[in-house]
Write a protein that binds this DNA or RNA. Structure first.
Lengths: 298, 298
DNA sequence: TCCATTCTCTGACTCTAGTCAGGTTTTTCC
DNA sequence: GGAAAAACCTGACTAGAGTCAGAGAATGGA
């Protein structure tokens, strides 16, 4: 890695944590511990109440700690809690009117902070700053996406596979019925028969991709999907590259896939990654295009 | 201010402080309180020792607190302190060999963190991230520069005025002797005769600019200077705009200035800000060009 | 010389943040 | 139905971060 780049990243980290980080904290904490403000903010204005479990994972806090913070917010009249009717073990937290007002104040202060930052700049600088911030945010998010194998029965993986099917059903002119399509069960996507890669951002699943191995025959690419919120971050490309690496490692001479004409971005991705359209190598009813890419010998 | 911009800045703040801030802290604190690591880092590798006072202002910490942190670092053998020979009230802190080694470890971890961030991206994304980070850093720094009037005898102002003279002396072919130039004493740059604006980044002075008023005659622009470290941030332009605003407020119909041909960036700035070259209106020996700009009636 | 100021240190605190080990109530799975 | 797991809560702690008042030594200015 280039030293100049590393130095730039470090300088950025220092400047940003000092200027933005410190300010943000100072603005958020107003006569109240920072933890409480953050929790207040995170509970947000959902009318249904936010379950404590999701608060814990979102803020990465100890369950006892969150419980105590909630008690304290309740004591100040900013939050109410109740047990969920659906599962009476889980607690739902909800902002009171005073809590909403307090959150609005935090919002305002946050806006104020941002405005103050922008005000010192002229219009051209402002535009460039905002554009650069968007770029940094996007790429930092992209850099945070982790790709790792997962079991197809794992809840996060199942979420992705369901979302995949739902999206196909929405986008295909004919809809999509998994029963009519060539099957790829959990067992097919689990080593040694195949494998499934999961892309996660923080703890949330944002994409997947799978392989079915066929010994010394080409491996089949399956279940490529990226969540809408994570598109444009290069997740698909990274999944594809990692799948190819693993196919090579498993001894496959090539990767094959079939796809539907409605999936234009996917097709563009395959082409730009070096996949070449070939004759149909199976009778998948939903497919319009078949692609193949030779792998370097592993 | 545009709502979209504000929203982007806020999103940036959230994402970046979470990802960068949290990581940085985690990396810096290794079996040692974060405060100590930060202090260790800030003391740095100067062979002369760092005076405790400057550490306090740099980290914005209570004097008692810093003292305690230093004791603790001393106890771990990472730092030595001694009284300054010049002023035996001030303490100088210096890293021991073990302290240097520890700082190197922190450096390495910081590099590692940056590398890890970049590694998840492909080459194109990496280049774009680094470029955007540089832009954000630069503009964030620019936005942090504050411009305010100051007394010409104030230490920070004197620093700027000295630096101004030193730079002219260096850049003018003939050198610069303030005695031969038209005078602008402290009294001339203090209301109501005139005024001095100071640009500061955090607490450090990085630029200045002054006006001498002449009743209903054009005001004279004097002592425009920007520190090398702050060039390219639009500080000069902001100083100029603010001086014009204040000249208008003081009832001046125009602003005039003379300048030397060696100061090419300054001349470019004046032209692009709407200044027009005129005949010589004084006999300043160091001047090659005279400019004037009409002000809107205040 | 003497008085105000500067610089640092110490002691005595407070508060926030966070951890850990149970314990209770529900729910789920077999 | 019963055991295991999940979700949350409480109590008891620890450590870090920081504040404040005051003391002592050195310095600078009148």
């Amino acid at each position: 890695m280039d030293e100049v780049m590393i130095a730039q990243v470090r300088r950025f980290n220092r400047v940003v944590t000092q200027q933005v980080g410190a300010l943000t904290d100072r603005f958020l904490a107003r006569d109240r511990p920072l933890g409480e403000s953050r929790l207040l903010w995170e509970i947000g204005s959902g009318s249904d109440g936010r379950d404590v479990r999701s608060l814990r994972t979102a803020l990465d806090l100890d369950s006892g700690y969150v419980s105590r913070l909630l008690r304290s917010l309740e004591a100040s009249g900013l939050v109410t809690t109740e047990r969920s009717p659906a599962d009476r073990r889980v607690t739902l937290a909800r902002l009171t009117e005073a809590g909403e007002a307090e959150k609005d104040v935090l919002d305002e202060r946050s806006d104020e902070l941002a405005t103050q930052l922008l005000e010192a700049l002229n219009e051209g600088q402002r535009d460039r700053l905002v554009a650069a911030m968007a770029e940094v945010e996007r790429l930092l998010t992209a850099a945070t996406v982790r790709i790792a194998p997962a079991d197809p029965e794992d809840p996060a993986a199942r979420h992705c596979l369901r979302a995949y099917a739902a999206e196909l059903n929405e986008r295909f002119e004919t809809g999509f019925d998994p029963g009519r399509s060539i099957r790829a069960d959990a067992a097919d996507l689990r080593p040694p028969a195949g494998l499934l890669l999961l892309a996660t951002l923080h703890e949330a699943p944002v994409g997947c991709g799978a392989l079915k191995f066929h010994g010394t025959e080409p491996a089949e690419l399956k279940r490529m999907w990226v969540d809408g919120s994570a598109r444009g971050l290069g997740v698909g490309r990274r999944l594809l590259a990692e799948l190819e690496r693993r196919a090579t490692a498993a001894g496959a001479p090539a990767v094959r896939l079939e796809t539907n004409a409605a999936l234009t971005e996917a097709i563009a991705l395959y082409r730009s990654a070096g996949y070449v359209e070939t004759d149909a190598f199976n009778d998948e009813p939903y497919a319009h295009h078949w692609f193949e890419k030779a792998l370097p010998p592993g």
